[in-house]
Structures are given as C-alpha cells and as structure tokens.
Amino acid sequence: MNGRFVRPNPLPGFGPAFGVTLAWVALIVLIPLTALALRPWSLGITGVLASLESPRVLAALKLSFGASLAAAAINVPLGLLVAWVLVRGRFPGRQLADALVDLPFALPTAVAGIALTTLYAPNGWIGGLVAPFGIDLAYAMPGIMVALVFAGLPYVVRTVQPVLMDLPAEVEEVAATLGARPPQILVRVVLPAILPALLTGFGMAFARAVGEYGSVIFIAGNMPGLTEIAPLLIVIRLEQFDYAGAAVLALAMLMLSFTMLGAVNLLQQRLARRAR
C-alpha cells in the first residue's frame, strides 16, 4: 500500500482498518452478491432479456422505482423539518418525539404493514374518513406511498440530525441578528451546510423504499400491472422454483439502485468537498 494506492496522510491505521474493512465487505456482501450476479446467466442472454421485457415486469419496476423516488422526495422536506425541530426546538416531550422517529425501524415490516392497513383500510380511522367520498387509500397508490414514506422517514431524520447538531451556532446567530427570519435562516444558512447529509438521507430512503416488501405487501393490493411491486414478482418467481428468473429481476433492481446510489454518492462527495 504505497503512495500509488493511497494518498500519503499523517494519520495512522490505514493498513489494519482497510484489512478489516475488506474482509468484512467481502464475506458479508461481495461473495453473496457475486453468487446472485452469476445466477441468471444459466438462462443465456436472450433468456435474461426475455424474462425482463414482459409488460408486467416493466410495470412492476416502474411502480417500485417511481413510487420510491416520490416517497424519498416527500421524505426530504419532511425529515429535514422533523430533524430541525428535534435538534433546535425546545418543547415538552421532545425526547419522546425523538424516540418516535425510530419506530418505523423498530417495528418489523410485517407489523408496520398490518398497522398501516388497519389505519387506512376503508374501515380504519383514516380510511373510514375518506371512504364515503369513494377514495381508496389502502389497496391503491396512496397506501403504497404511505408505507414507503413511513419506512424511509427515519433515514432522512437520522442522517441529518448529527450534522445539524454539529453545526456551529454563530452563523445562524449572526443571520438572526441581521434580521433574517427562521425560514430564511433554514434555506440560506442551514440548508447548504447539510445538503450532503440530506442527499445521503434521500439516497437511503429511496433505496430502502425500492426493496421494501413486508409492509407494502399488506397495503398495496398486489393487483398485477397496477399495484404489484417488483419484490413481489421476485417472490412469485421463487414460488415457482424459478431461481434464475428471480435472480434476473433481483439483479436488474440491484443495478438500477446501484446506479442511482452511485450518482447520489458522487454528487454528495462533490458537495462535501465544496463545503470544506
């Protein structure tokens, strides 16, 4: 590991840390994903393409990625607001509100799905309010969106929160004394500083939403071509002992997510460098 590979740096410990990192990544992520990446090709290239191009598969992929992007986009302002209030706000029950943020994590996805469906089904507390107007929440697009926003919210809040805590008070203080109002402070001063973290949160919320299975399955309705998500199609293929077909879909989803995450990372690092 000489100058070529790693740029000289006065800090110690690159060797051992890198060794541990490599073993950790290889054993838990690389080897399994390699097995996944190699599995589809027993079908041949044409088989792989054929198993991807059915309208039903395309509809499911479109739904999964579209809804996840939208959910992540909703989560960014929502998560920022929550994180900001939790870090800066002084109000009774702040600790409790803070704990609530982690609830979507702590609940098994199946329980979350059951809970959301209980609430948004036509006989639920919220679903019942709009049912008389002929609006379906559960078993339709709104239900899927709610489940995905629910799953992704903690990711945005928890990535923004530490950076927000670390932000020096002086800048905001000066802005305030210069007459800036809180929304202006948020947009002009706070936002640029936390943009990298916000992007990271967006990426995580999106990634989590794309793969989400347990909770969506309860609330989505799962009608082919309409409310059927891509992970369900993978399960369906597995049910038919079609491992290769399942791996094709899995790999396609993985590559799409990988590209998206890579783009977000690139943007995030550029922003981080500029901020410094």
Partner: peptide, 10 residues
C-alpha cells in the same frame, strides 16, 4: 497488517 487483520476477521 492488512492481510493479517483480514485473516483474523475471517
């Protein structure tokens, strides 16, 4: 060192 710690982790 990197190799050693990799082996240990393994």
């Amino acid at each position: 060192m990197a190799l050693k710690s990799a082996a240990a982790a393994l």
